[in-house]
Structure formats: C-alpha cells, structure tokens
Nucleic acid binder design. Structure first.
Lengths: 129, 129
DNA sequence: TGTATAGGTCTCACTTAGAGACTGCGTGTG
DNA sequence: CACACGCAGTCTCTAAGTGAGACCTATACA
C-alpha cells in the first residue's frame, strides 16, 4: 500500500505532474462537486429526466442541477437525450465511462459506511475538547 | 453492480436517509475538499511537519493547509503531535482510519488514470461544439 | 542587530454556491 | 375561455467559501 501510493506520486512527478492535467484533480473535482456523485448514483438506478432528478435530490437547486449535469455531460459521464415530444422532455443517462466510475466509487462508499461511526465519534470528541 | 447500488440507496432511504447524517456526504466532503485528499496522499508517504507539507503542496495557502489539517484531525484521519523542541515543531501523520481510507481512494485514482484520456477527449469534443 | 525558521492567524478581495423568481410552451380543468 | 400546472431550464441577488499574502511570537545563528 505505502509503496503503491508513493510510486504513484513518483510517477506523476516524473511525468511533470502538471496540476492542471492531474488525474487526481480531474476525478476529484467530480466527486468533490457535492452533487455530481449523487446525480451519478441516481442515474445509475435508471435514466431520468430533469425534474425527476430534481425531485430525487430534494436539496439541489435547479441551477446547480443544470450545472452539474452539464459538467458531467462535458466529461462524457452522462448522456443528454432530448425527445421531441409535445413538451420536449430531456432524459439523462450514464455513459459507459460514467457507469465504470461506479465500481471504485462504490468501494469508497463501503469505506464510508464502515467508518461512519468512528468518524462521528472522533468528531464529537474533538468538538468537546 | 446496478443492484448493488440501488440496494444501497434503498437501505439508506429505509433508515431515514438524513442528508446531514449521510455517509456519502461525510466521506465526500473530504475527498471533495480539494486539498484534503492531496494532504492524505502526502502524509501516507511519511509523517510530515506543517511547513514541509506546505512545500510539498506548493499551490496551497497556509490558511487552507491549516484548515484542511484541522478538518482531518477533527475526523480522526490525521494525528497532530507537537514536539516541545526549541522552536516547537508539529508533526502530522495518518491515523489507522486515515490509512484505511487510502485503499478505496487508491481504487478511485486507478480509475482516474485509466479514464483520463477519454475524459479529456470528451471534454474537448464538448467544448468545440 | 538583522535574518531565518517554525507554526500558525488575520484581513481583504474575489469566486462560487444556493434560494428562488421568471420564461416559454403546451395540456388539462372549471 | 381563462387559469393553473408541468416541463426544462435561465437569471439575479445574496451568502458563504477560497486564496494571496501580510503579520505574529519565539528561538537560533551570523
């Protein structure tokens, strides 16, 4: 483990490690973005339309939903399909890349669930002192 | 995969799924935080002192470094040890929880490296159109 | 005496996020 | 026929977060 990660960093640095072209930042910016990963999670259940997503994620504003979806679309993780129905409807779904992201992401969620109580405990201990 | 994730969400919803007590948010807020994961990566190489970390992560400001370290400490992922030397030195290191985070996180980085070029391609395609 | 290191804190400017009103269009309801 | 509603957003305004960098206290060294 230790060597694994250290090697990774060494490799990056050897390649120049441009922070703007950094794979970490590229993926983290998504996971980071507070909403994108929740959107991915929803879309993995099933392709959904704009307002359906909005309802599934009650705390997100339309503005942020639009923006997050655009970001994901731009990176090829989500596909946007407009149906030419009477009131035009827009369906969002995962691409293959988006779907493949769910595997490692799921590992992270497993970790989160397993360690949730410890983190909570550490937090309240810290806050008390 | 699909069922795996769908089940997870169902479980959360069954438990009440309080967004403020959500394991996803709890872990994502860290990965999200733009700097915390890079700090974890640095500390996994070896325990380091405040200014050493600052030098290793040249783009971070002291203010953000302090804040990120405090957050990580609060959640029990990083340990802060003050040595009573002449100019007191402070060493930061990973806790067991912090170290255990590196495993799933590493998976995510693998994914990022594998898909980097695709994402970049999608991005420039999107930007052109 | 002046300079450097340590580990931060403080302030200010700027960017980003969120709430929520508003748009245009078509359908259903009274 | 008038009214309200759902769709898929956009726009504006304000609040919160981020980053740059000056500043602080203390010791050691030249």
């Amino acid at each position: 483990m230790r060597d694994l990660m250290t090697d990774r960093i060494e490799q990056w640095k050897a390649r120049g490690f441009d922070p703007n072209n950094c794979p970490v930042r590229m993926v983290l910016d998504h996971v980071a973005a507070k909403w994108t990963s929740l959107i991915l999670l929803e879309l993995e259940k099933e392709p959904q339309r704009f307002n359906a997503l909005g309802r599934a994620l009650p705390d997100i504003s339309k503005r942020m939903l639009t923006q997050s979806l655009r970001d994901l679309e731009r990176d090829g993780m989500v596909r946007r399909k407009v149906y030419d129905t009477k009131p035009p409807s827009v369906e969002y779904s995962l691409t293959d890349v988006g779907l493949s992201f769910m595997a490692p992401f799921s590992q992270l969620l497993d970790w989160a669930e397993k360690n949730q109580s410890q983190i909570l405990a550490a937090r309240s201990g810290y806050d008390k002192s």
